[in-house]
Design a protein around this nucleic acid. Structure first.
Lengths: 194, 194
DNA sequence: CCTCCTTTGATACAGCTGTATCAAAATTTG
DNA sequence: CAAATTTTGATACAGCTGTATCAAAGGAGG
């Protein structure tokens, strides 16, 4: 198999481990087992653990932003864009729950390794915020970046409460629907120039 | 020194380590050094690491809820209560930043150890949500618990963005002020019965 | 004084960690 | 086929981890 392919496989194994058991579950030997590959090969690509972890996190940030871009580029009304973002961010199915867990791991990692993981985390968040702000701004929404951050904040927070069993999925959805209702009057350009 | 005093000192050392370097920084030997005590004594109280960690997390949840209760029991108008909550939760000074880091550690720990840390985390969140919901409900706010969760969500999310340098402190404050502005019409009982 | 509680010291052990190093297969590629 | 690349195997090592076990010192209260 080609070099790039193997590297990808290995980084996918790292992602899976992150999603399942957090940062502590990512050991070189565990990665080898998860990728169904010898420990020696994990060393062969991505020589050090930090390099491997860093590359995985960068890849993750890229993927996350790219995925959201693909979905949001069919621009609807601003409210629809925000609704789609919230819907996408909500950890309801297996995949999005895994993604949320990876995000939490990354957030925690940013504390321990501000240089490696912190940079990836900031890149991730900044990319999402920039893109969301751009889309909103293009629709004439006032104070677009501030709103983008607010939407990201509530998405993250509600996701956390959902993962911690403080909200059921229907409760989370109706909470966000309420939130969107209150947001509606602020989304038109002529309503208020900030 | 009395038994309870030492135990408290040790758990405070655990908290400090959590705030500084996340979960991985909490080793028995590091706790001993941080508490300026011998390793043997850390074993003497809180025999197992899991027990020590669990007790610390429980204590933390208690403290956090109690602190917020003390502040919110001087009941003002609903908007003021929510504003106070947001203000308190915002990681601006050293202490609240440390607290936020501990919270992130706890959140991540809830993934790795759903039994020990997960329980403490849920207790923490539930306690905060219950109390906030009670206060709001007593003021006649409709759908109080849902709103309580929403406020907690945005507080957590904005805190995360602030810690990750995606928002400056003034930006975060004006974001929350905007949010509160939109919330105001919904806080009176006669405005809308949900 | 003597007994109980607290505290320390030194040290051990097995387990997991990242990393390194030998040679040797297996596979792909020219 | 031959050469280069990819992959494995078997270990090794030093470091940190939680936990355990020895004896002994220090202090408080009866």
């Amino acid at each position: 198999m080609s070099e790039a392919g193997r590297r990808t496989e290995i980084m996918e194994a790292v992602e899976r481990l992150l999603a399942r058991g957090g940062v502590n579950a990512v050991t070189m030997r565990a990665v080898a087992t998860e990728a169904d590959v010898s420990l020696r090969l994990v060393q062969y690509y991505g020589s050090t653990k930090d390099e491997l972890l860093g590359a995985t996190l960068d890849r993750l940030a890229d993927k996350s932003i790219r995925r959201w871009q693909a979905r949001a580029d069919r621009q609807g009304p601003a409210l629809g864009v925000i609704g789609a973002f919230l819907d996408e961010a909500l950890p309801t199915d297996r995949a999005s729950r895994d993604l949320h867990r990876v995000g939490v791991s990354l957030e925690g990692l940013a504390i321990t390794h501000p240089d490696v993981a912190g940079r990836a985390y900031r890149t991730h968040l900044r990319g999402l915020a920039d893109h969301l702000a751009d889309v909103l701004d293009a629709q004439g929404v006032p104070a677009a970046r501030r709103l983008a951050c607010e939407v990201m904040a509530i998405a993250h927070g509600v996701g956390t409460l959902l993962m911690a069993d403080q909200l059921t999925e229907p409760e989370a959805r109706s909470l966000l629907a309420d939130y969107l209702d209150r947001l509606r009057p602020r989304l038109s350009t002529e309503d208020r120039a900030d």
